[in-house]
Simulated assay, not measured.
Amino acid sequence: MKENEEIQKVSQLYKVLSDPTRLRMLLLLKLGELNVTAIGERLSMEQSAVSHQLKLLRDTHVVKSRREGKTIYYTLDDHHVIDILNQTFEHIKHQ
C-alpha cells in the first residue's frame, strides 16, 4: 500500500514539473527568492496566473513561501528540487 502512495506522489510531482511555465518559474527560483510581482515581470505573466501556478507548486512541496509584511516570497522547497532539475537537464543534454 505504501509503495502505491509513493508512486502516486512521484507521478503528481512529475505532472507539476511537466508544465513549461512552472519549469520557467522553478529555474528563476533556482537563482533565489522572488515575489509574485518579480516572477510575473520576468516571465511576462499576470500576477493571478503566477499565483495560480505557485499554488500548484506549493501544494506539491516544490516551493515554499514566507511572508514579509504584505509581500510573500517564494523559494524552492529544498535542495532535492534543484537536484531533480539539474539531473533532468543533464539527461536532456545527453540525448
Rank of each mutant, 00 (worst) to 15 (best):
residue 1 M to A: 12
residue 2 K to E: 12
residue 5 E to A: 14
residue 9 K to L: 09
residue 10 V to T: 03
residue 10 V to Q: 03
residue 12 Q to W: 12
residue 13 L to R: 06
residue 13 L to C: 04
residue 16 V to C: 09
residue 19 D to E: 08
residue 20 P to F: 03
residue 21 T to K: 11
residue 21 T to S: 09
residue 25 M to S: 01
residue 25 M to G: 01
residue 27 L to W: 04
residue 27 L to A: 05
residue 27 L to Y: 05
residue 27 L to S: 03
residue 29 L to S: 00
residue 29 L to Y: 04
residue 32 G to H: 03
residue 33 E to A: 07
residue 33 E to M: 06
residue 33 E to P: 04
residue 34 L to K: 14
residue 35 N to S: 04
residue 35 N to Y: 04
residue 35 N to F: 04
residue 36 V to S: 07
residue 37 T to Q: 11
residue 37 T to R: 09
residue 37 T to C: 03
residue 41 E to W: 07
residue 41 E to F: 07
residue 43 L to P: 04
residue 43 L to H: 02
residue 44 S to T: 06
residue 45 M to P: 00
residue 47 Q to A: 11
residue 48 S to V: 11
residue 49 A to V: 10
residue 49 A to Y: 02
residue 49 A to C: 03
residue 50 V to D: 02
residue 50 V to K: 00
residue 51 S to M: 11
residue 51 S to D: 14
residue 52 H to R: 15
residue 54 L to N: 02
residue 58 R to Y: 12
residue 59 D to I: 09
residue 60 T to C: 13
residue 62 V to R: 05
residue 63 V to W: 02
residue 63 V to G: 05
residue 65 S to E: 14
residue 65 S to K: 12
residue 66 R to E: 12
residue 70 K to N: 08
residue 70 K to M: 11
residue 71 T to L: 12
residue 71 T to G: 08
residue 72 I to G: 02
residue 72 I to F: 05
residue 72 I to H: 06
residue 73 Y to P: 07
residue 73 Y to D: 14
residue 76 L to P: 05
residue 76 L to I: 03
residue 77 D to M: 10
residue 77 D to K: 11
residue 77 D to P: 08
residue 79 H to V: 00
residue 79 H to K: 02
residue 80 H to T: 06
residue 80 H to E: 06
residue 80 H to Q: 03
residue 81 V to D: 01
residue 82 I to T: 07
residue 83 D to M: 12
residue 84 I to P: 02
residue 88 T to R: 03
residue 88 T to G: 09
residue 88 T to H: 07
residue 88 T to Q: 06
residue 88 T to W: 05
residue 89 F to Q: 14
residue 89 F to T: 15
residue 90 E to S: 08
residue 91 H to W: 12
residue 92 I to D: 08
residue 92 I to H: 03
residue 93 K to C: 06
residue 94 H to L: 05
residue 94 H to T: 11
